[in-house]
């Protein structure tokens, strides 16, 4: 059964079409990666699923029920973890979770039980009386998640839940997402970190200009790319690197430099490795390693959208 079914979804702001006739299915029990560069239409879609925005056209079904006609049902069964922290600094961790859970009709002993359960789940069980102003960035992110799950939603939408936190907290959150999924929740997960998506998502959709341009498992998506290869050249990063001259070489579609490695996308049918190395030698770059990478999600995304995920 589909947890979420989107048919012909369109959202216009004046003449601007933010979401353009989108069709999408998310199956129950999935961790569904929803990828798109800034302005691609991700947030608008999420806001329509969460009933924060009205649709211009199209239908959204949650667990088989149309959300426009069953708005309370939809809201009761969706938990949203916003990209920006949405907590009250003047209320302690327990009060924050308890307040939001209370809005979903939980009362008395059940409210207390679910609040404590949510805080324990995100590892803040011993910080119930502490105020968020005393929390680290990672702890605040975890509290942000606890506020969204105390009412046990069937569908949890996580909009970049790991932005700006340390690796340890990120790992904790990723494990929590997997655990929530194992406990029966369907997750829609957006992130600017492709490695996170590769690690936890069972299926992925790539959205661009308000449309789904690719959808499938990560293996399926990688097979889409047959005409692009990625060459990594490790260099000693001193002085100005000859990135512009590399872009002039036949077949090269993009060049970027990250952490001591020049990452070059090139057309598969053009054999240009020798020319790339010769150009680097001419530009007096100190080459340390050269390897051709198998296509990954980053390559897929870049090839399909012409942009990096973090753009």
């Amino acid at each position: 059964m589909n947890a979420l079914e989107i048919r012909g979804l369109t959202k216009k702001f004046g003449d601007f079409v933010a979401v353009d006739n989108m069709n999408l299915n998310v199956r129950e029990g999935e961790i569904f990666g929803f990828l798109g560069a800034n302005g691609a239409g991700k947030s608008t879609t999420i806001n329509m699923i969460s009933s924060l925005l009205r649709t211009t056209k199209g239908e959204i079904d949650l667990l088989g029920k149309n959300i426009a006609k069953n708005i309370k049902f939809a809201k009761m069964n969706i938990g949203i973890v916003p990209q920006d922290l949405a907590i009250y600094e003047n209320m302690n961790a327990y009060e924050n979770v308890s307040f939001f859970a209370g809005l979903y009709g939980l009362r008395g002993a059940l409210l207390k039980e679910r609040t404590e359960e949510a805080l324990d789940f995100v590892g803040l069980g011993d910080k119930q009386k502490s105020f968020p102003k005393n929390f680290s960035g990672g702890m605040k992110r975890r509290l942000n998640i606890a506020c969204a799950i105390a009412h046990r939603p069937k569908l949890i939408i996580m909009d970049e839940p790991t932005v700006g936190i340390d690796p340890q907290s990120r790992n904790y959150i990723l494990q929590s997402v997997k655990k929530l999924n194992q406990m029966g929740s369907t997750i829609i997960y957006t992130s600017h970190y492709m490695e996170e998506v590769e690690e936890i998502c069972t299926r992925i959709a790539i959205v661009d200009h308000g449309k789904i341009i690719a959808e499938g498992t990560k293996e399926q998506l990688k097979t889409i790319i047959t005409d692009t290869k990625e060459i990594w050249v490790g260099v000693k990063a001193e002085g100005e690197l000859p990135l512009d001259s590399l872009k002039q070489i036949q077949g090269v579609t993009s060049v970027r430099f990250e952490e001591g490695v020049i990452k070059i996308h090139s057309k598969t049918e053009v054999n240009n490795l020798n020319r790339i190395i010769q150009q680097l030698i001419r530009d007096q770059a100190e080459i340390r390693s050269v390897e051709e990478q198998a296509p990954n999600l980053e390559t897929v995304f870049l090839t399909l959208t012409g942009r990096n995920l973090r753009d």
């Binding site: 969460s50 009933s51 924060l52 708005i71 309370k72 809201k75 009761m76 969706i78 949203i80 916003p82 920006d84 922290l85 949405a86 907590i87 009250y88 600094e89 939001f100 809005l103 979903y104 009709g105 506020c147 969204a148």
Partner: peptide, 13 residues
Amino acid sequence: TRNTALRLSAAPV
């Protein structure tokens, strides 16, 4: 400003 408007709007209230 606190972004809590989003949570309030998303709740069945």
